[in-house]
Amino acid sequence: MGPLIPQGIISGEWNNVFALLIGVVFGFFLEGSGFSSSRKLAGVFYGYDFIVLKFFFTAAITAAVGMIYFGYVGWIDLDMIYVNQSYVSSLIIGGVIMGLGFIMGGFCPGTSVCGAAIGKIDAWVFTGGMFIGIFIFSEAFPLFEGLYNSDNLGSIKIYESLGISRAFFVFALILVALGMFYVTGIIQKKVKKVEY
């Protein structure tokens, strides 16, 4: 729970408590947005429901703009934010596998747990498969280790790797996102409604 625990403001024992609370809130909003239905997620691929895309892109652009302004007024130190390291080849392969699982199962890991919690059988199957996958990956890790650790670009940011300014990237992302919202709205109207 940064920045409170790494800064020593509260002790590390609270980590699990905060994880639980954040998890509950996250699950609540996922369920509240209807993401625990696999039809909702599959709708992005079939073109009858783009709420997932809108939800996550709104979160991304709001967070990006908010963080930069917070950083500017000094409420947050952007240099202290942890940025995941980018392992390019494993990212691409992992992305393909995740995308396939997404369209086949209609869940992402978070929403599958959400669906399992409200008793959806397909979510149970999906979650079970996820754990089997985790088990196989962990047991066979020495096989995958080379790929897993290959092509590390470090904690790179996308606008740095593209060599453009942060402001330009975020502004472009906003325009692209808004454009996407508009276009997907049109598509949604043209595609036959699916009741679920």
């Binding site: 652009i61 930069i68 500017y72 942060r166 975020v170 325009l175």
Partner: peptide, 29 residues
């Protein structure tokens, strides 16, 4: 289209455009 959507979309665009005028801030703590 919902008026509220238009308002929030415009707000995001304005805020995003505002980023161009923010100076790059280094940690001056």
């Amino acid at each position: 289209m919902n008026l509220r959507y238009i308002f929030f979309a415009a707000l995001l665009v304005v805020l995003g455009a505002g980023l161009f005028f923010l100076p790059e801030k280094t940690n001056t703590n």
